[in-house]
Amino acid sequence: MAMASTAISLSLPTNTIPSSSSSSSSSSSTVNPKASILDHRHLLFLANNSPSSSLFTSSTTTRTKQLSTSFKFKCSSASSSTALPSALLFDCDGVLVDTEKDGHRVSFNDTFNEKELGVTWDVDLYGELLKIGGGKERMTAYFNKTGWPDNAPKSEEERKEFIASLHKRKTELFMALIENRLLPLRPGVAKLVDQALEKGVKVAVCSTSNEKAVSAVVSCLLGPERAEKIQIFAGDVVPRKKPDPAIYTLVANTLGVEPSSCVVVEDSAIGLAAAKAAGMTCIVTKSGYTADEDFLNADAVFDCIGDPPEERFDLAFCASLLEKQYVS
């Protein structure tokens, strides 16, 4: 695949590797995929303030690891030898749609109100609860800590059924929001999905949320033509949820692809941890609740995927991150 695009090349001062001679340093420099952990705003600042030279140049006795990334334009130049990802995997909430604050949280609260539980999750509290993967797990942890409602069952088994019934109703309310298109796709999602599908890259959505809710997001907001080509792995498809890598391991096995050839788009620290533990490349697109989380282990971090002319990255950039893994 030959693609021409503009690139910013930054030479970072960290993680340099001593070389035996200055002549070898120019021909066999190691590329660090983690070098792309820079917020796009920082990249824009660097681009605007050093337009004509590489930044942070190291001495001639070291080999400096290079980063190619971008802000608001195509970020890599994909040559004909650049291998595309075998699969492009998206988280749902916060990646496809910024659903948490005005979607899931509202639906939880409406459910609690219907059931007269006397519980309300405000914006800040819900942000803390999002550190727990899975809605049923989130409610259980909250009630275990704060006390179960008076009208909740007493036995552990009955409480599991109670939580399941709450989550089922919450999912119904959330799906109504999606079906009425009250929550839009995040910028660039449809573009990147289309690029992958056009090139024969497998696409899947991998989420801790209920499978029906995730299917509603994909079908209603991405449309039926895209939806029929996208596999969904969600909810209780695995017994252990993110940050456990089980869901991404399952996806790789099901799709018949190597984890190292997959690129994941996540928005949270627990999603990033799951992807990296599965041996996959992971790009973070920050969402409303996750902007201040630790993404040190990410391969790249952006505020969104973005549509032209506000594009942050594309399929070629995803391919370039994979290519860096194999340069030695």
Rank of each mutant, 00 (worst) to 15 (best):
F313K: 02
A213T: 13
A278F: 03
A204Q: 00
E310N: 11
D307E: 08
E225Y: 01
L315K: 05
V218P: 08
A234E: 06
D299L: 09
A298Y: 03
E293Y: 06
V265Y: 07
I247W: 02
V205A: 05
I270G: 10
E228F: 12
G306Y: 00
A300G: 02
A291S: 06
A274M: 09
S320L: 15
A269T: 12
A273H: 11
P245H: 02
A319D: 09
D236V: 14
I230F: 01
L272D: 14
A274F: 03
L296I: 05
D299Y: 01
D244V: 07
V284D: 10
S261R: 15
P224Y: 14
E225F: 04
F313H: 09
R226L: 01
V217I: 12
A300S: 13
E310L: 11
E311T: 11
A298E: 01
L250A: 11
V265D: 06
L272N: 09
V265M: 10
V251E: 02
L255Y: 03
C304E: 10
K242P: 02
C282A: 15
I283D: 04
G256M: 11
L322G: 07
F233A: 08
G256A: 11
C206R: 00
R240H: 15
L322N: 02
C220W: 13
A273T: 13
T290L: 01
A274W: 02
C206K: 00
Y289G: 05
I247A: 01
A252M: 00
C304G: 05
V257L: 09
T254E: 07
V301S: 01
D294I: 05
N210V: 10
K229Y: 07
S261P: 12
P243L: 01
F302Y: 13
V263C: 15
S287M: 08
N253F: 09
P259N: 01
V205L: 08
P243A: 07
P239S: 15
G279Y: 01
T208N: 14
C282V: 10
A227E: 02
V257G: 03
V251N: 00
K242A: 05
N210W: 12
I283A: 05
D307Y: 06
V214S: 03
E311H: 04
L322D: 00
D299Q: 08
C220Q: 14
K286D: 01
